[in-house]
Amino acid sequence: MTKHLISITDYSKEDYMRIMELAADFEANPNQNLLDGKVVASMFFEPSTRTRLSFETAISRLGGRIIGFTDSSSSSVTKGETLHDTIKMVSGYADMIVMRHPLEGSARYASEVSDVPVINAGDGANQHPTQTLLDLYSIYKTQGTLDNQNIFMVGDLKYGRTVHSLLMAMSQFENPIFNFIAPKELEMPKEYKQYLDSKGIKYYEHSEFTDIISEADIVYMTRVQRERFSDPIEYEKVKNVYILRNSMLENTKENMRILHPLPRVNEIHVDVDPNPKAYYFDQALNGMYTREAIIAHTLGLK
């Protein structure tokens, strides 16, 4: 059976740990000629420079060749070709497909059409599993384990797919504790809280976090976007509550690290950047090693 990575739940705990191992190996040795003679299709039906460059660098460091497009205006989509036909054609050319698409479920569908493995680089607001795996690697690397983590998730917990996937993935490990800090309008959806309940995992909800941040091992920040609010007054009221400043980090744990999927706007004040607990730029770099690991794992090259 062809192995794909579409949704974070496609991977078991063993797969996660294998990726952690491989990512550490690629971090120590980024240039390994494992994709020699192979062609990888990088199909970006919508632009995402950060993710695309990370993937394409990973492919290049593995010695593979890249075909593809960077947004749908330069592909046959503009001529009205269906996703089905585009994928069918490309899966004949390439050994693997990396795809980003604005519609939700597009990657799952592509994996059912394709003869070669498909890696989902984001399907609308649905899934972005390689982001989750690089988040896991960042936690693993800085904490030395994925067990017993107290994870603070801050900001837009309603629409933020990265926090949802991270929650699902971390729930596979021992004794996680979650603290959700969000305005009422953007709180963690019921289905995820029900999932934690069903697994007996502890979580707490707060509307602000200055007093409790000292307990955190990981603070995962996300953007609170103005357009998510039906009432602009609500946005004005909460917009400054979810900003992390350096002064708030005084009594935090030594091992605590701040993560953010990037790009940030103003939710992490620039005065945090020089603090050794600020980890978001290292996190982005970890993405490349993690993607090398995912590619190697998907194609069974290691």
């Binding site: 269906t82 996703l83 089905h84 519609l103 479920g105 799952r108 569908y109 399907d123 607001a125």
Partner: peptide, 14 residues
């Protein structure tokens, strides 16, 4: 029918 207007099932013949 999927109620999510951004679901792929609305645009592909599937």
């Amino acid at each position: 029918k999927c109620f999510n207007p951004k679901c792929i099932t609305h645009t592909e013949h599937m």
